[in-house]
Design a protein around this nucleic acid. Sequence first.
DNA 1: CGACTAATTGATACGAATCAAAAGCGGTGG
DNA 2: CCACCGCTTTTGATTCGTATCAATTAGTCG
Lengths: 251, 251
Amino acid sequence: MSSLRNRAIDASALDQEAVCKTCWAKSFSFCKPLHAADMGGFFSAAASLKVNPGTVFIHDGAKFPFYFNITRGATRSFKILPDGRRQILNFGVPGTLIGFSDRSIFDFSVESINEVSLCRFTKDKVDFYANKHPELRKSLLDKMMAELSESYAHTLVLGKMSARERLAFFLMKQNKTQFKVYGELNKINLPMNRYDISDYLGITTETVSRTFTQFENEGIITFIKASEIIVRDRRRLGALAGGGTRSPAIG
Amino acid sequence: MSSLRNRAIDASALDQEAVCKTCWAKSFSFCKPLHAADMGGFFSAAASLKVNPGTVFIHDGAKFPFYFNITRGATRSFKILPDGRRQILNFGVPGTLIGFSDRSIFDFSVESINEVSLCRFTKDKVDFYANKHPELRKSLLDKMMAELSESYAHTLVLGKMSARERLAFFLMKQNKTQFKVYGELNKINLPMNRYDISDYLGITTETVSRTFTQFENEGIITFIKASEIIVRDRRRLGALAGGGTRSPAIG
DNA sequence: CGACTAATTGATACGAATCAAAAGCGGTGG
DNA sequence: CCACCGCTTTTGATTCGTATCAATTAGTCG
């Protein structure tokens, strides 16, 4: 797990308000409702950060009174058992809000997969504005509900599904988010490696690999390269993924 | 799955304010902070309900603009796959708040295990008071955070742990909540049956049963009866449960 | 006390893990 | 530009934990 080594976080002090105005991730970020209102005061309190690939920027057990909104790149959140076994809880994409935790203490870690850009907000500041703006409060709650709901879907996958079903679920989910964030319809990009996928799905890399091969042989998907997939038969993929997520209809 | 059949919900219109004043579950319920203030208006908006054993009182996919606070008994929340496989997401005990969901639509079902008493609050009413009382808002958020946090712990268990570890985790968790709610130190009560435990842990009843027997043979636990356990060696049980939950130290 | 359901125990099968090796891929330097 | 090295991914052989199938025992209720 060499990727767990820590690297520096590059913070650049830019004109945050201008950054927010042109932020391409705002339409699916928690701060969306504030862009309509004249909320320069809120945005100037934010800070833009860049994180190098493979950097753990939130540590399990640490006190951390910030929210992070991802604007570019991808992250993995995970828990680790004393003997090193790792479970990935979810992957973050642009629009993902990180920071829901009890008493500001995280009970999982978050690591960048590739180069990640994010906005940092102090919780106090967010709370302050949330108290004044019901829409922001609702937006935050929605993000949190969605996270809880996704966690429950994940629970179902890990508790009841076979390797084939798990991978199908993962691909459908990935397909859905990539459509939402990047507008890709049938192309699935996999910024994470096979270990990440296996640690997310509770199986091994070998099983992930074998199952990918099966899917390709069955004409369900085609590989452009190891990290890029074309969905050929969404119906069958969706059927395999079962009720894991509420019907992942796209478009 | 005969237990999924629906039975009537008995609603009794009592003097709610009096009920709340003497509610034994209030010290660990979301409404706790309001008991200090003079909040008769809030409590009179609540309704006390009783639910017969084995009743699904919240249905996956249903619109349901209420919160339920459990005051007596136990519940199971679950998701079901099209082919009938069931995953239990969590068990509810007195103090558990049910109702966090996206746009008031539940994406899981909730069923009573034994006779359950609960308080029903309309979400509008709760929101109204939450806007005026930061402590109530915080209390609600805390419940939600705890639910998310527990779901993540559950994810780790289902994704990475062996049958022995899963059952140990379950027992430690059960032990911890029963201490908090009922003050029992080494006695664990199991209101749920073996199917529930297996569907919560992602294993089969047979495996649950075999593992229980192992634990008893190893001197870790003793059975009073099938639904009542004495913990003999919490150290070993905790070690097995690993980092599944943040150190389950009691007392 | 008998009938039904829940829980336990036993025998076998199977899916995925593990162990092992080969192939693919990306970067570096001669 | 190609050869080499390390890392990731794929493929193969075998093992192992848990599921499944089957039967017995315990517990509960009329």
